Simulated assay, not measured.
Amino acid sequence: MLTISRELVDQIVAHARADHPDEACGVVAGRDGVPERFVRMENAERSPTFYRFDSMEHFRVWRDMDDRDEEPVVIYHSHTATEAYPSRTDVSYASEPFAHYVLYSTEFDQFRSFRIVDGVIEEEEVKILESNG
């Protein structure tokens, strides 16, 4: 199960809507499996049907997480015309076995999370923590 704050969900959704009609992508860094820090990344493909992290930005972001003793807890991207379910390409890119792969569909307003390990997709429950303020 992915447990994530409403603030982080809202940031992912806002990024997806801002980059629409292109797919948006990024990561939520954290420690011990707890998502804490939103990191918006650029879709190097600038495409409505495909995303790819820019290789230099990817390197910088992962190095920054290492420096902060963080890990990629959530790796997210949006789908702009289809449901929030991993495509074959998404599965081929899934290289972090402990990450939650979040997809947000701007077409269907769906926020879903998956574990993808060795090409196997397993959807998981999402628990959104509302802020107390």
Rank of each mutant, 00 (worst) to 15 (best):
Pro72Trp: 04
Glu23Gly: 03
Tyr76Trp: 15
Arg37Thr: 14
Pro21Trp: 05
Glu57Gly: 04
Tyr85Pro: 00
Phe59Glu: 13
Val28Met: 04
Asp69Lys: 11
Asn43Leu: 08
Val91Gly: 04
Ala29His: 01
Phe108Arg: 08
Val39Ala: 10
Pro21Phe: 03
Trp62Cys: 08
Phe108Ile: 02
Val34Pro: 00
Asp118Phe: 00
Phe114Gln: 04
Asp54Gln: 06
Phe114Lys: 01
Trp62Met: 15
Arg31Glu: 15
Met41Arg: 02
Val39Ser: 01
Ser95Leu: 14
Glu23Arg: 06
Ala44Ser: 15
Arg115Gly: 03
His79Glu: 09
Asp66Ser: 13
Asp32Arg: 06
Val61Trp: 00
Pro48Glu: 11
Phe59Gln: 08
Asn43Arg: 03
Gly119Thr: 11
Ala94Ile: 02
Ile116Phe: 09
Ser95Trp: 09
Glu45Lys: 12
Ser95Tyr: 03
Asp109Pro: 02
Ser55Pro: 00
Val39Phe: 07
Arg40Lys: 12
Asp32Gln: 10
Gly119Tyr: 03
Phe114Cys: 05
Arg40Cys: 04
Val39Tyr: 13
Ala99Asp: 02
Glu70Gln: 15
Glu96Gly: 00
Gly119Met: 07
Tyr93Lys: 10
Leu103Gln: 07
Phe50Gln: 12
Tyr93His: 11
Arg60Tyr: 04
Leu103Met: 13
Gly33Arg: 11
Asn43Val: 04
